[in-house]
Structure formats: structure tokens, C-alpha cells
Simulated scan of single mutants.
Amino acid sequence: MPLSRWDPASALARIENDVASAAHHAHSTSVQTATDGDDLVITVEGIDPSNVDVRVSGGRLTVRGQGGSSSSDSRDEGGAHFQSFSSSSSSFSRSFSLPEGVDQSDVVTEPSPGGVKIRIKNAA
């Protein structure tokens, strides 16, 4: 294997690329609330609906979720083969107080663009 001179500029460029890639894949979740007639509507964006858990207990609605991503890169440079792997994961949990009498059967969850929409009947 031939020796090659270490190039700090190339090493720094690879690190900057890896950090930029990790920042790009970082998970961000936003929660918005609104009313629709007598219903309370909570929209959670930035999460896969299959990774969301919605529960009603003790007069509170709790929304929990997890997200994550992974990526890999492989390249040949100067006769050497480089591979890099990165992954990120995050979780969130939000709780909301509910009016008396609201139970799990009053909660309907449906996918929405980029997330999930939770409708609580007669809670507004």
C-alpha cells in the first residue's frame, strides 16, 4: 500500500460534510393546537404516524413519539476506500389537560402530511 501525505484540509472538509449531514437529518417535531367546532385538534408534524402513541389517562392526553434516521457514505479517494455511517434519533412527549368526561374513545388519530392529526371530540 503506497503511503500518502495527510491533508488536513481534506480531513476538515470530510468532518464538515459529516456534521452538515447530521444536522440535515436531525429530527424536529412541532405541535400545534386548534379548535374545529366542538373538537380540539392537535397536529404533530415531523414524525412518522406509525411512531406516535396517544393515550388518555387521569384527565390528560399524552402524545409520545420517536423518530430517527441513518445514512451511510462510501467513496474511494487516493487509492483508499472510505466508509462513514451516521444515525440520529429523538423522542418527544407532550401532555394536555382535558375537560372532564373525555376518554380514549373520544380521541381519533389520523395521518396528516408530514405527521399526525389528533382529534378530541367535544373537548373545545
Rank of each mutant, 00 (worst) to 15 (best):
A22S: 12
I42H: 10
A26T: 11
I42G: 07
R14F: 00
A23Y: 13
V31R: 04
A11P: 03
T35Y: 00
A34F: 00
A26K: 09
Q32N: 13
D36Q: 07
S28I: 03
V44A: 08
S10R: 13
T29I: 15
A23Q: 15
N17Y: 09
N17R: 13
V44W: 04
S21V: 04
T43G: 10
N17S: 11
T33W: 02
H25I: 02
S30D: 06
S21C: 07
V19G: 05
T29P: 03
D36K: 03
S21W: 08
T43E: 13
S10A: 14
A23P: 03
T43M: 04
I42K: 10
A11F: 09
D39L: 05
D38R: 14
E45S: 15
G37E: 01
S21I: 03
L12F: 00
V31L: 07
V31P: 02
I42L: 14
D38I: 03
H24R: 15
T33V: 12
H27M: 15
S10K: 12
T43N: 13
I15A: 05
D38N: 14
A22L: 13
T35G: 05
I42A: 05
A22W: 02
V41M: 07
L12G: 01
A20L: 08
V19C: 07
A22M: 12
A22H: 05
T33L: 10
V31Q: 01
S28E: 07
I15M: 06
E16D: 05
G37F: 02
R14N: 03
S30Q: 08
H25N: 12
V19W: 07
E45N: 14
T33R: 13
S30A: 10
S28K: 06
A23H: 14
T43P: 08
H27Y: 06
A13L: 10
A11D: 11
A34G: 06
H27S: 15
A26L: 13
A22V: 08
D18R: 14
A34D: 03
V31H: 07
V44G: 09
A34K: 02
H25Q: 12
V41S: 06
D18T: 12
H24N: 15
T29Q: 10
T35F: 01
A22N: 08
I42Q: 07
A23R: 15
S10E: 13
G37L: 01
T29N: 08
N17F: 09
D38K: 13
A23I: 14
A13N: 08
V19T: 08
A13K: 12
R14C: 00
A22E: 08
V31M: 03
S21Y: 02
I42S: 06
G46V: 02
H25S: 11
A13P: 02
L12C: 00
S10Q: 12
